[in-house]
């Protein structure tokens, strides 16, 4: 230590100077929930089951996502598409139930990567919200499937 360092005061004054400079600096805080921070386009947020251009569900219940899931959070049951349901399901097989356990899910994106039909996506604009009850985190098809696009608006 040099003599001036031994005296405590210069270093303390320097530190105080730095903190005072920050006192008048622009603040870095983002006022969540009023403002939200920009997330990247590939952010892995809440799952969505996509529909194709015609509004039919893309998922064919092949089960790859469930296999790929390291947390074993996805379960589904497959069903055969009946005639007259072509506008609902794109392929002959579809998922009758499709559940993601959001508490188990680690949002690693392997399901999205595994899906050969581009059906499941982790969307960047939604995050899984906090809730009070455990049961509310089993996301069924009612909450996962993308809402139907109406013709006039998106």
């Amino acid at each position: 230590m040099t003599f001036s360092e031994r005296m405590y005061l210069p270093a303390i004054a320097q530190g105080l100077g730095i903190t005072l400079k920050h006192f008048f600096k622009k603040k870095a805080t983002i006022n969540y929930p009023e403002e939200t921070r920009q997330r990247s386009d590939i952010w892995r947020g809440l799952h969505v089951l996509k529909r194709d251009e015609n509004g039919a569900e893309r998922c064919t219940a092949c089960g790859l996502c469930a296999v790929a899931c390291p947390a074993e959070a996805i379960t589904m049951t497959a069903g055969e598409r009946k005639t007259g349901e072509e506008h609902l399901y794109r392929e002959e097989k579809y998922a009758v139930t499709y559940e993601v356990n959001m508490l188990r899910c680690i949002f690693c994106g392997l399901c999205e990567e595994a899906c050969p039909k581009a059906a499941i996506f982790l969307q960047d604009d939604k995050i899984a919200p906090a809730r009070y009850e455990r049961d509310e985190f089993i996301y069924g098809k009612d909450r996962l499937v993308e809402p139907l696009k109406t013709t006039e608006t998106k």
Binding site: G63, A66, V67, C69, E72, A73, I74, T75, M76, N101, R104, I138
Partner: peptide
């Protein structure tokens, strides 16, 4: 309790 093993191979 919260998983069904059929899919995981």
């Amino acid at each position: 309790e919260d998983k069904i093993d059929t899919f995981f191979g």
